[in-house]
Computed example of a mutant assay.
Amino acid sequence: MRHLKYGLMLSGCLGLIAGCAAVETPNSFTFVPDFPADFTYDLTAAYVPGKGETCSVPGGKGTEVGFNKTNMKYQSPSEIELYRTVSGCPLALNRVQIKIIGVIGRDQKRTYSSYDYASFAVRPELQERHRGSIDDDGAGRFFGECQWLFRTVGPKRYITKILTCKRMDSQGNLGRGHPFTAYTLTQLPGKTVELQIRLAAEEEPYMGDTWVKVPGGWKRCMGKGFEDQHAFCYGNQTDFSTFRMVDERVCTIYPSCAENKDDAP
């Protein structure tokens, strides 16, 4: 199948006087992130030989296109091509993977980040029940909820967080797996695909039996001492340790830090 570099050409009559003219179908769509504050993303668009093509790309080089990768200028939104030709082989977009990145302590001395993934498939054809919809405003939307899971690391027990993201429907009901949807190649020209991510209201411990729920938050079990990196509670709900926040505060309750201790290691 032959794919035109700038998209398929459609013809239509523009009026009795003007006659008929060729109208170029866009060869791209726009990805739009709708994320919480201090969230960013990078994106990988993967291509395969178009339907009916028997060619291949040596080593697969050039079949993936990255956006917002390291040393790239950050852009939001991103414009993604539907068709491209590499090594003489016409390719069609097959999958888009979005790396959802949450940043902690952006203005603090100890800044770090964590991430999880969302994606959408793009196929020549899809059964209707598997196909995402495009709204009247020209946007396809899919949804997810991300949650911070907290833990401590190192002998001083610094707080760190792991991001996990789950699929969500338009009514806010959580599902299994990562945020995901699918579209056909003919749905997307000139349209937008928007990923809406909400942040869970509460954080939870990353690992079970390491924190105890108390008024105002969570207390960290001491375990065998500060050198004990796992420090499971094992039923001991009286011996707790301090920990350090990103801004170096020493606390005993997370996240409120309502009780401060000056005798932390």
Results as ranks from 00 to 15, higher is better:
F150Q: 00
A139Y: 07
K99G: 08
F29E: 02
Y158D: 06
V250Q: 15
Q147D: 01
Y183M: 05
L82C: 06
G138Y: 03
G217Q: 10
F226Y: 15
V212I: 14
V250Y: 05
I80L: 07
A21G: 07
I101K: 12
M168G: 02
A258K: 13
D169L: 07
V212D: 04
A92Q: 15
T252D: 09
A201Y: 13
T252V: 09
Y47F: 15
S133L: 12
M168P: 02
I159A: 01
Y6H: 10
F232V: 08
F29S: 07
H130C: 06
N27H: 08
D136S: 14
D38W: 12
D107W: 11
Q97N: 14
G235A: 05
E145P: 00
E24G: 03
C233A: 04
A200D: 12
N94L: 06
K51G: 00
A92I: 09
S87Q: 07
T63C: 04
P215D: 13
Q237D: 12
N27T: 07
R244W: 09
C233H: 04
L91C: 03
C146S: 09
Y158H: 12
T252L: 14
G140D: 06
L195D: 03
P77E: 04
A139L: 03
D136V: 10
Y158V: 01
R249T: 11
R244G: 04
Q229T: 11
Y83C: 03
N94E: 08
G140M: 04
T30C: 10
V57K: 05
F142V: 01
D42Y: 10
N173D: 08
T44H: 06
G19C: 03
D116L: 02
A92Y: 13
R157W: 06
V96D: 03
I101N: 05
Y206L: 11
D262G: 11
V23H: 06
S11D: 08
G216Y: 15
Q196F: 14
R129C: 05
L16Q: 15
A231Q: 02
A118D: 00
T238K: 13
S113D: 03
R249I: 05
D247S: 04
N68K: 04
P49A: 00
D262S: 15
